[in-house]
Design a protein around this nucleic acid. Structure first.
Lengths: 328, 328
DNA sequence: GTTTGTGATGTAACCGTTTACATCTTCGCG
DNA sequence: CGCGAAGATGTAAACGGTTACATCACAAAC
């Protein structure tokens, strides 16, 4: 038998005699033979691998993202090349370059990018699908969250619960998603003719910045409600408030953003804008698969977060009622 | 210039004239040239990639694991090929086979394995480093947690806090780490001459099984303390107890295992056996790097969890005192 | 002015597949 | 019985690097 016949057999071509095929498959089985993927990739220019470039890996948000991508990749027989910690766009570009010949497409999340990372003549050299906004790279198909709408709704919810002084714990200033959430908060306030009541505290999307925000707020006279730009900060906030003896929601209401899995398990459960993280991730991977297969793909898909009201933002009288019923 | 000279330049050999080298580097720069990794891999038999095989990706435990691996891989210029959801050993073997020619080494976590996945003549065909115990694959270097000791200490801590009836919410029965934790619980009870007091509830390492355990326990008359085989179950448990109006730790003490990041942020903060997840992950990756480089590596490294006592298991009188001071 | 050694560069084989094309069988049919 | 088509198989050229070895230029030593 020649290499060509073996190759044809293993790739499922139908122009191989049944007897020959059986013999080859049997031998391949006993030898535990697996084709060398680099050689195959060199020849076919396909790696059956998708690159995943994330800004960070800390916390449940990214965990869910990866989980969603992995599930979809397994279903399609694709491998995943993971790389993270690409805070600045420079690093993201370098990582993209390094991935170029190792993957068939890349899922990129780079909310801090400024220069063009995709498109012709760019650094990618391979199809890119964007997860979230990526300033400067509007050319690629993207799966974005409507951060503005989500933040707007959360803020409106807090306002309609009777809270007037609503503090906003912002995300990193160079992060476009964080800026959009801030914009949504502001818009809701100004619509409620409460624009003057803006109360913004800097944060960094991690638990610790939530803690610090809460400590600052507790020292400066509490607002009616605190809206953190993501759930991790809200969880840090909640913890610091508990330490200070401030009750949520009785003394101050609290809301986050993302609806990471843990948010329903904290005490009190967290009101938040739910983002279908794993589902978006799955769709992004499937988009990659479509591009590789040469199928047409949607240019941009926007996901509107869903307002999830839990105990952390309950109106004071509701909460009081609950307290009585629990105690009675 | 010939391909050989270019290759030598790009690989940093010193037998290239300075003038030639500069010219090549300049041209490579303007062309944004990156060597084709498959071609290089085919020739050198190195991929500069480490495979990571995990049983699952859900929750902060795996998130931390991946984060630790990624950090170390970046530091060493290695890529990461990620694959998960290999519950049964069959699947893990298939994934291992598929990775064979794509990676230089594999970090494998397969607590449910039974057959030999590593060593000569096995399915791997590539060096394997084990994360946690992997029944049947004792030949490979491994980084294991002393689950027995951790569970023993947690149980002893609960006993010494005055709790007699301690329920244990177990992990999956086919998971060797979970079985070791159960064994530690039992040993501590029997050492305290409380062997008859064994109270075991089945669980599955996820939040939901923690919830169900709590519901079952609340219905059946509460124990003094609940020890969950991991933090995720403890968090689910905590949430269900709160719903039932059961106070922790006043009505029942609670402890988990792992010390995932979120555990210090739940209310009350969770007593647990701290496992340095990210650090173990880092060491596992560095072990891979050492193997690839031909350096000698330790055969087996055991990490003993550290008992972290937080409010969820405080002794009743301590808790009461805290309550007074907080309220007063 | 040869010889010899050394450093720079070029040549070509090799890594393990895929695949276009050539070849060889076999069979049906005029 | 010979011919063409179709089907099975083989041959060899890519794919894009690395690297052992050959070659070449040049300077130092004799």
């Amino acid at each position: 038998m020649s290499v060509a016949t073996v190759s044809r057999t293993l790739n499922g071509f139908d122009n191989v005699a049944t007897a020959t095929r059986d013999r080859i498959l049997k031998i391949a089985g006993t030898l535990d033979y697996v084709p060398h993927s680099s050689a195959r990739a060199l020849s076919t220019r396909r790696t059956d691998t998708i690159g995943v470039l994330l800004p960070d890996l800390y916390g449940e948000f990214f965990s869910e993202l990866i989980r969603g991508i992995d599930l979809a990749a397994r279903a399609r027989g694709l491998h995943l090349l993971l790389s993270s910690s690409h805070g600045d766009p420079q690093e993201a570009a370098a990582a993209l370059r390094a991935m170029r010949s190792r993957v068939d497409a890349v899922i990129l999340m780079s909310p801090q990018a400024r220069k063009n990372l995709v498109g012709p003549g760019s650094v990618a050299g391979v199809p890119v699908v964007l997860l979230g906004s990526c300033p400067g790279s509007e050319a690629a198909p993207s799966f974005v969250i409507d951060n503005y709408a989500g933040a707007f709704e959360i803020t409106r919810h807090l306002l309609s619960a009777g809270h007037r002084r609503i503090a906003f714990v912002a995300g990193p200033q160079d992060n476009v998603e964080a800026r959009e959430r801030l914009r949504g908060y502001r818009a809701a306030l100004s619509q409620a003719a409460a624009a003057g009541a803006e109360w913004i505290i800097e944060g960094g999307f991690c638990e610790d910045s939530g803690r610090r925000a809460a400590q600052a707020l507790a020292g400066a006279g509490l607002p009616d409600a605190i809206f953190c730009a993501n759930d991790m900060m809200a969880i840090g906030c909640l913890d610091a408030l508990r330490e200070k003896g401030v009750r949520v929601p009785e003394d101050v209401a609290l809301a986050g953003f993302d609806d990471i899995p843990i948010s329903r398990y904290v005490n009190p459960p967290l009101t938040t804008a739910a983002v279908p993280i794993a589902d978006i991730a799955r769709q992004a991977l499937e988009c990659c698969a479509d591009i590789i297969a040469g199928r047409a793909v949607a240019n941009r898909r926007v996901f509107k977060p869903e307002l999830v009201i839990r105990a952390s933002s309950m109106m004071h009288r509701d909460t009081a009622a609950n307290q009585f019923s629990e105690r009675g």
